[in-house]
Computed example of a mutant assay.
Amino acid sequence: MMMIGLLMGAALAAAPAPAQAELPPPERRQELLFEAAKLGRIDLIPVLVQHGADVNAYEARGFTPLILAAYNGQTAAVDALMQAGADPCKPDASQGNTAQMGVAFKGDDAIAARLLKEKCDVNARNRAGQTALMMAALFGRTKQVEMLLAAGADASIADTNGRTAVAIAAVQGNDDVARMLGSK
Score class of each variant (00 low, 15 high):
A14H: 07
M82A: 03
K90W: 01
T98G: 15
D109P: 04
M101Y: 10
A84T: 05
A110P: 03
P46T: 07
D154F: 05
R114P: 02
S183T: 09
A150F: 07
K90H: 07
D175T: 15
L6C: 03
S94V: 01
A19L: 09
Y58R: 08
V47L: 10
K117M: 06
F105Y: 10
L81A: 11
A150D: 15
T160W: 04
I157M: 11
E59Y: 08
A165G: 13
D121H: 09
P26Y: 04
R163Q: 15
L12W: 03
M2F: 10
A57F: 12
A99R: 12
T142Y: 09
G173R: 05
P65T: 15
L12T: 02
I67N: 12
A113R: 15
L6T: 03
A17S: 08
A178H: 10
G62Y: 09
V103I: 13
S94N: 06
A76P: 01
A93P: 03
G140T: 04
A14P: 01
T164I: 05
A132C: 06
M147P: 02
R29Q: 11
I4N: 07
A19K: 14
A37M: 12
F34C: 03
D108G: 09
N174S: 04
Q144N: 08
D175S: 13
L32S: 00
A57Q: 05
P25C: 07
V145Q: 04
V166D: 05
A11L: 04
L81S: 09
I67V: 07
K90G: 09
L148N: 06
L6I: 07
P65M: 12
Q172W: 06
A124P: 01
A150H: 02
T142F: 08
M82N: 05
A167V: 11
G62F: 09
T75A: 13
T142P: 02
L138D: 15
L6F: 01
Y58G: 03
A80E: 11
A77P: 00
A76S: 11
N161P: 01
A14L: 11
P26T: 03
G173N: 11
V47Y: 05
A110T: 13
A113Y: 01
K184I: 09
N72I: 05
A137R: 08
N174E: 13
R179T: 12
T131S: 15
T131Q: 11
